[in-house]
């Protein structure tokens, strides 16, 4: 059990990083990474929502959709859960933890359309993970996203001062740097866990 959880965590953070090997969550990854501070804030918000969404969607799937034979409604149900979850988290944080809200608040609405969140929930179902495995996969997947976006933001801060052809201005140079980071992350793919 413990080794299983460890291998899920290591897999989600390093080997099958959500951004660099599965391409889940690329939009916020490219959009919110111009500064390390914003990137860290976005990453933290994603960890939080991915963990919660994994837990709640697992419960809904196992206790409502599967017993009623409504598996075909999974996508619809999950996206509604994620959208309302994000709303609730936003309201809750605003009222009870204003300090955290001021740090994460502006990123929360963006998370609804982050495909990493819907992706992790769908992958939990696809991989037949149990409750604990799902939550672990959600949180560590989020941590992997955070690691990726923070690393990428620090690269971008440096790229901003370098010279490159004019037509690479903006997105293209970001994509090329992201590609190089993906190449670096490929080094983890031969890693053996408890082999």
């Amino acid at each position: 059990m413990l080794t299983n959880i460890l291998s899920i965590s290591l897999g989600a953070i390093l080997i099958n990083n959500f951004i660099f090997s599965q391409f889940l969550g690329c939009c916020p990854f490219l959009g919110c990474s111009s500064k390390v501070d914003t990137a860290a804030g976005m990453g933290l918000a994603v960890v939080f929502v991915m963990g919660l969404a994994s837990a709640i969607c697992w419960v809904i799937d196992q206790f409502i959709l599967v017993p009623l034979g409504l598996e075909f409604l999974q996508t619809l149900a999950f996206i509604l859960v994620i959208a309302s979850l994000v709303q609730f988290v936003e309201m809750f944080l605003k009222k009870s933890v204003p300090s955290l809200y001021s740090a994460l608040g502006i990123y929360l609405p963006l998370i609804t359309t982050n495909c990493a969140v819907l992706g992790v929930v769908l992958l939990n179902v696809q991989n037949n993970y149990n409750f604990i495995e799902s939550v672990v996969y959600g949180i560590t997947g989020g941590l992997g996203f955070m690691l990726a976006i923070v690393l990428f933001a620090s690269v971008r801060e440096r790229v901003a001062f370098s010279e490159y052809p004019e037509c690479f201005e903006g997105f293209p140079i970001c994509l090329v740097s992201a590609g190089l980071l993906a190449l670096a992350f490929m080094g983890f793919s031969g890693m053996q866990i408890f082999g």
Binding site: F23, C167, F168, G170, P172, L175, V176, G179, M186
Partner: peptide
């Protein structure tokens, strides 16, 4: 065909378009 290729190809394509 690996993730690296995805990022680079799209990056070059957008650069070409901007050009």
């Amino acid at each position: 065909t690996l993730p690296f290729g995805g990022f680079i190809t799209l990056g070059l394509l957008i650069a070409l378009m901007q050009y």
